[in-house]
Amino acid sequence: MKTGITTHVLDVTQGKPGASIKVELWKLTDSARSFISKGITNEDGRVDTILLEKVDNGEYELVFFVKEYFQRLEVKNNFLTTIPIRFYTDETQKHYHIPLLLSGWGYQTYRGS
């Protein structure tokens, strides 16, 4: 059984995984943000490492740095630069997978499996 917080990126415009995108994980407490970990998506669009091994109760933020990704693809007039996704966790749930479906003009996410 998987544990922790994981992610991947799919570029729906290209119909391919979003490779080489920097991702950071932050913990939110009251008005403070605490850095936890970072990773880079591989050729399959997945961050190889688990961003957080043990899930506890709380609010987290994944930040996807997509500006450089779009620049590498030579996307003109791209709209997005960074994408923050905030979510809550419950320690009774051992694994949270947060995918990012990406295009140059918008994005979508959901709780994956």
Rank of each mutant, 00 (worst) to 15 (best):
M1A: 15
K2N: 10
K2S: 14
T3G: 09
T7G: 05
H8F: 14
H8T: 03
V9S: 12
D11W: 00
D11M: 00
T13V: 01
K16P: 00
K16Y: 03
K22G: 10
K22M: 09
V23F: 04
V23K: 06
V23M: 05
E24F: 10
L25P: 11
L28N: 14
T29Y: 08
D30C: 05
R33W: 03
I36A: 04
S37T: 03
K38L: 04
K38S: 13
K38D: 07
G39V: 00
I40M: 13
T41R: 09
T49C: 13
T49H: 13
K54T: 08
D56L: 09
D56Y: 06
N57V: 01
G58R: 07
E59T: 11
V63K: 13
V63N: 07
F64G: 10
F65I: 02
V66C: 06
Y69A: 11
F70V: 03
Q71S: 15
Q71C: 11
L73F: 02
V75G: 03
K76T: 05
F79N: 15
F79S: 15
T81M: 07
P84E: 01
P84A: 07
P84W: 08
I85W: 00
I85E: 06
R86V: 08
T89I: 03
H95C: 15
Y96E: 02
H97W: 05
L100P: 01
L100W: 06
L101H: 04
L101S: 08
W105R: 09
T109Q: 11
Y110T: 02
Y110C: 12
R111M: 14
S113M: 11
